[in-house]
Structure formats: structure tokens, C-alpha cells
Design a protein around this nucleic acid. Structure first.
Length: 637
DNA sequence: GTGCGGGGCGCG
DNA sequence: AAAGCGCGCCCCGCAC
């Protein structure tokens, strides 16, 4: 991807060379980053900078240690507002620079983030030590262990010298890491890293304490009521939330606890999930006591509201605005993820959390999302011409498919029928089979028979035969990724109709995306099951560390589409930032902005233009976006 | 007491 | 012929 940085407000005219920084701070057994995240750590009264080391490009690394004012003076002398600041975990070092010393560097580069796409798939970690080893850089020392519990004024000269050597060593490694990683990262990705760090350091959403406290009271009341309901049976919280004890409660009421086979262990286990129809059926059991038990358990088991409201309140106490922690390249497809106990990417659609995230007075929240982006990309890759045309013409594709499914005109499709159509378009395009489709629909409150599910899958595949063919083609690519040797060059995969430009480059255990980043499938091999074109690769995101995940054409299709959708969104995000519109949050196919009220209309049109701007590597892709405006995130539906 | 795997659940 | 995918966090139960 080409960077068009010339003359943009993103880059001031006068710059200084990049600089690497590493802060050393007080820690003890309890008060440590290994037991708490950056927000409470840096905001804690115990927080203290022991010293920091820095290295300007082309110079020796240096060390400084002094009191608050001396440290601030030293930092100011470095003129960080004219530099790119590199750190290994820049969210940490940046929070010190910005929250403690009130200094705003021009730009950030985080070697821990930058390492994720290149190191994580092969090591499962991106600590400085792991990265140094992976790239054969000098070893990291562990002198920091000696510094536990020592405050700055208590350091002996010798110990402080040792600390400075440790710190300088880390800084030198981090500089080398930047020099190793930056050339591998496209300009857009470097900007994304900077923007991701700034989402955390310079949040602009304000947490509404009143909304959160009210929600907390309601949750406590709800849980108390759930316990009250079963109190006559002398049932306790412990009995409700424990699987084996809860099974005992059901048996006592003469109900055989529903069971299923564990997908991860293959052993029998209790089916006590909202997704288990047998379990949910107990809510309507003739014996009220059974229904009450299940109801109360479900209430007490749903913890996301309770814990996240508390987490938000904890942040509100110390932070003027919401720091949005987002993990860069959390998924091997490049997707982002949550972190620091605050996953901002899975906030419930209902409930108080989204309403508690507000724009400050005089500002509005704007949420823009790329409509059905994955389905659109799939249609183009598969050369499903009619489907692409419908997307381009703005046809409601979900309703359109429902119309084919129920064999009646689109005008007669009702809400629940459209919902079925939506689930088909979103799920069946990646090879979902009848059994999983039935289960998914059951769990979403649209129960259907196995036979009906089989019919629907068949209708989908016959209506979009090219999508089915795409999975077959991708089976072949997986085979290539296995058979090509590490130094065996590459083959190009041309999608029908030239859907992707340049075509997909396939090498040993990886595919290269149009922005030059790769999806890696380490240790990819045949799955081993006879007569099945199933492959397996090592993943650190599996059920356990370094388990093998299965993959086939349909799933591979989803990986590629997810990765491409992510590039589309990020491209727009970077271009918007370069034009001065910096988003405060990102949720896969959605960008969130906080803007002055009087600019809303102008901003909406810029966002629409950049989000729907044709993508150079997929000119046939029809893009559309929806935009919501409100005083809070929750209002932007 | 701590770490980890599994199940569950929220989002896309 | 058949096969959706990607996360993070909470909590329990168990191993160390």
C-alpha cells in the first residue's frame, strides 16, 4: 500500500530523528505489571520513575535518573513532539510520557506490536527476550529482578549503575528491533500502530459515572432476586454456579441433567449453556422449581455486565477520558483484539456499558460501519456476479436471499425471515453445514429441524455455486502451502475475474495479502483424517497453548476474507486520520469518532467518502457504510 | 496461593 | 461428500 504522507497534517514539516525510550519504574511483589495492567499501575500513588534510557538514531544510548522535575526537564529537552518515539510496549512508556509528564510525542512505534505479525505465529509470545532471540539480537539481561521493592532514593550508586546498564541494554535491543521490523511493515501498518497507541493514550470518550452506578445497583438487585427465587429451596449461590452441584440440584427435582460431548476433550460434559436447547427447554419445565433454578443460574452466570461495569468504574476514578486498549494483530488474520481486562470490542448491545461511553459536552459520537463487508468480499473473490451486482445496486441482500428461500416476493419477507436470510449470507458463505446452522439458529431463538437446515444450506449453495467452487479452489491452495518447500519459491493464485490485484501469492505455509502482510499457517500439514481434505496448523489461540487447528477451503476462505476486510477498514481509518479525523475506537468493521457537534454533517460526508472509496487491489468491490450519531456509543445504532 | 484448561458468553 | 471463522474475559475445578 502506498503512503501518501506528503503535505498531510499527519507529518509536521520539521522533524527530529526517531528515538527509543525505556522507563524503569518502582515495583514490588504486589504492585507490579505482572499482576495489574498499565492503567491502575501508572495511576497508582506508588508509581515512581526510577530512571529512563533513550537512544537517538545513530547515537549511543544514555541513561537518566532524577526526581520528577528533573526527569520532566530531561524529557522536554528531547523534544519528543517532533519525534517518533519507539518502545517495547509503547502503551506503557507512552502512558508515562503523556499521563505523568504531560508530553505529546509526534508519533509512536511499538516494537512489541510490530513483532506480533512476524514473531507471534512462531513463538507464541513477543516479549523483548523472545523477539531478541527470534531475530538473533543481543540477549536481554534479567538484572531487573534485583530492583524489586527499591525506591529511587534508596538505590545505592552501584545498584543504580546496574539498573542503567540493564535499561540501556533493553533500549539498544528495542532500537535494533525497530530497525528489523519497520522495513517489513507497510506505511499504513506503521500508522495503524501509532493510531492504536493513541487510542489508548488519548481517549476522548467520557465515562458516565451516574449511568454506571445505576447499572451496578440494577445488577445487584437482579442477582439478589435470582437468589431470593430459590431461597425457599435453601439453594446457595455456590450451588447454582458450580456445574456438578447444579447437576445435583436438578437431580433432586427429578430432572436428568442434559449432557453433551466436549469438543475439546471428547469426554461427556454437562450441557448447561444458553446454546444448549435441552437446557433452555428446562426454562419451560412443568415443575416451577426447575425453571427457577435454571433462570437463577443463568442470571448469576452472566458476569460480563457485572465485571465490566466495575472495571469501567475503576477506570473512571483515575482517568479523565476512557483509554481504549486495543491489541494490534491479535488474530493471525490481522484482526485486533481487546486487552487489559477491558475488551472494548465485545461490549453487549444491550445494557449500560455502551450508554456509559459518552461524548463530552458540545461533541457527538459517530459510529460508521462497513455494511456486510465480509459477504461483499466473498462475492467478489468467488466471481458471484449477480450477488456483486446486487450489493452494488444497494439491494437488501439478506431480504433477497430470504425471498428465494421462502419463495415469495421481497415485500412479503418479515423481520424474522430476513434474520434467517442474514444468518445465511453471513455464515453459509464460509461452508457452514446443516448441523452447525441448525444449532446456531436454535441458539438464536429460531428453532428449525435438521431437515429444514439441510434444505436451506442446499438452497444457498445452489444459488451461489461459485462460492462453493471457491472453497474447492482454496482447498488446492492449502495443498500448495503444504507442498511448496520453505525455499521453494511461490505460486500465484488468480481469482476468477481478477477479483484480487495482484493475485494472491502463495508460499510455504503462508499467503501474502495485497498490503504485503501474510497470513501464516505454521506447521501446516494434512489433517490426517482419511478421505478428508482437512489440514491442521499450530495455533497459540487454540483451546490450549500450541494446539493444532483444523482448516479447509471454507474456513481458509473466511480467514482470507477476514484479513482483507480488516485491510479495507484500516486503509480508510489511516486515510481519515491523515485528513484529521482520528477515530477513538475500532470494532472490526466499525470506526468510532468523537467530533464537535457543529461538524457532524461535514464529518459524516468525509467518513462516507473514505469508507466507500474503491480499493485499488479489489476495484470490483462495492462498498457501503452506515453511520449513527448520538451523545453516547449506545445511542449510535 | 498460583497457573491453566475448559466451558460459557459477549462482540464482529 | 463434508467442513463457518476470529477474538478476550470470567469463573470453576483441578494440578502443582
Amino acid at each position: 500500500m502506498q503512503g501518501d504522507s506528503k503535505g498531510s497534517p499527519f507529518v509536521p514539516q520539521v522533524q527530529l530523528p526517531p528515538i527509543t525510550i525505556d522507563f524503569e519504574t518502582y515495583y514490588d511483589k504486589q504492585y507490579t505489571l505482572s499482576k495489574m495492567n498499565v492503567i491502575p499501575y501508572v495511576r497508582d500513588p506508588r508509581f515512581e520513575v526510577i530512571g529512563f534510557s533513550w537512544q537517538e538514531e545513530g547515537h549511543e544510548a544514555q541513561w537518566f535518573s532524577g526526581d520528577f522535575h528533573a526527569t520532566k526537564a530531561k524529557l522536554l529537552s528531547l523534544e519528543l513532539h517532533r519525534r517518533m518515539v519507539t518502545a517495547h510496549n509503547a502503551m506503557f512508556d507512552g502512558s508515562i510520557i503523556e499521563w505523568i509528564f504531560d508530553i505529546r510525542p509526534r508519533k509512536y512505534f511499538c516494537t512489541m506490536m510490530a513483532a506480533r505479525p512476524f514473531v507471534m505465529p512462531f513463538t507464541g509470545g513477543v516479549s523483548l527476550a523472545t523477539c531478541a532471540e527470534f531475530f538473533m539480537l543481543p540477549r536481554k539481561t534479567d538484572a531487573v529482578r534485583k530492583m524489586i521493592g527499591v525506591q529511587r532514593t534508596d538505590f545505592s550508586a552501584d545498584l543504580l549503575t546496574e539498573y542503567s546498564e540493564y535499561s540501556i541494554n533493553d533500549t539498544v535491543i528495542s532500537t535494533m528491533l525497530r530497525e528489523t521490523l519497520a522495513p517489513r511493515l507497510p506505511k499504513d501498518e506503521q500508522d495503524v500502530i501509532d493510531l492504536t497507541i493513541k487510542k489508548f493514550l488519548r481517549g476522548r470518550l467520557v465515562l458516565d459515572r451516574g449511568v454506571l452506578e445505576k447499572a451496578q445497583e440494577e445488577i445487584q438487585l437482579r442477582e439478589a432476586n435470582a437468589l431470593l427465587k430459590v431461597s425457599a429451596m435453601k439453594v446457595t449461590r455456590e450451588q447454582l454456579v458450580s456445574n456438578s452441584l447444579f447437576a445435583g440440584l436438578l437431580k433432586r427435582q427429578g430432572v436428568d441433567p442434559p449432557k453433551k460431548t466436549s469438543p475439546s476433550t471428547g469426554l461427556p460434559t454437562f450441557a448447561f449453556s444458553k446454546k444448549d436447547p435441552e437446557f433452555m427447554a428446562l426454562l419451560k419445565h412443568n415443575n416451577h422449581k426447575v425453571a427457577w433454578l435454571v433462570e437463577s443460574r443463568l442470571t448469576l452466570k452472566s458476569s460480563i455486565d457485572r465485571t465490566r461495569v466495575q472495571a469501567f468504574l475503576d477506570v473512571e476514578r483515575t482517568c479523565p477520558t476512557m483509554p481504549v486498549p486495543i491489541m494490534y494483530y491479535a488474530a493471525h488474520t490481522g484482526r485486533f483484539g481487546g486487552m487489559m481486562g477491558l475488551n472494548m470490542q465485545n461490549l453487549p448491545q444491550k445494557g449500560a456499558l455502551r450508554n456509559a461511553l459518552r461524548a463530552p459536552p458540545g461533541f457527538k459520537v459517530i459510529v460508521a460501519d462497513l455494511k456486510a463487508i465480509e459477504a461483499r468480499i466473498t462475492a467478489v473473490l468467488a466471481y458471484e456476479v449477480d450477488l456483486v451486482r446486487k450489493f452494488r445496486e444497494g439491494v437488501d441482500v439478506y431480504t433477497d436471499f430470504a425471498s428465494a428461500l421462502y419463495e415469495k416476493p421481497a415485500e412479503d419477507i418479515d423481520r424474522s425471515e430476513r434474520f434467517v436470510g442474514k444468518m445465511c449470507i453471513l455464515g453459509l458463505g464460509f461452508g457452514m453445514g446443516p448441523t452447525k446452522f441448525k444449532d446456531t439458529m436454535d441458539s438464536l431463538g429460531v428453532p428449525m429441524s435438521e431437515i429444514r437446515a439441510t434444505e436451506i444450506v442446499a438452497v444457498y449453495r445452489s444459488l451461489y455455486p461459485n462460492i462453493k467452487k471457491l472453497w474447492r479452489k482454496l482447498d488446492g491452495i492449502l495443498e500448495k502451502m503444504v507442498s511448496i518447500r520453505p525455499d521453494g519459491g511461490s505460486v500465484w493464485y488468480q481469482f476468477p475475474g481478477g477479483g484480487l490485484k495482484p493475485p494472491l501469492r502463495v508460499t510455504h505455509q503462508r499467503v501474502e495479502l495485497p498490503n504485503s502482510m501474510c497470513i501464516n499457517y505454521p506447521e501446516l500439514s494434512h489433517g490426517g483424517k482419511l478421505n478428508k481434505t482437512v489440514y491442521a496448523y499450530r495455533s497459540f489461540h487454540g483451546p490450549s497453548l500450541s494446539t493444532r487447528l483444523h482448516i479447509w477451503g471454507g474456513a481458509f476462505c473466511e480467514n482470507i476474507v477476514q484479513a482483507l476486510a480488516r485491510i479495507v477498514l484500516v486503509r480508510a481509518e489511516v486515510r481519515l486520520a491523515r485528513s484529521g479525523l482520528v477515530s477513538v475506537m475500532q470494532v472490526h468493521d466499525e470506526l468510532v469518532f468523537v467530533v464537535p457537534e457543529h461538524t457532524v454533517e461535514a464529518v459524516k460526508s468525509v467518513i462516507t467518502r473514505l469508507l466507500t472509496d474503491p480499493v485499488p487491489w479489489m476495484p470490483a468491490l462495492p462498498l457501503a457504510c452506515t453511520i449513527g450519531v448520538g451523545d453516547s456509543y449506545g445511542e449510535c445504532k
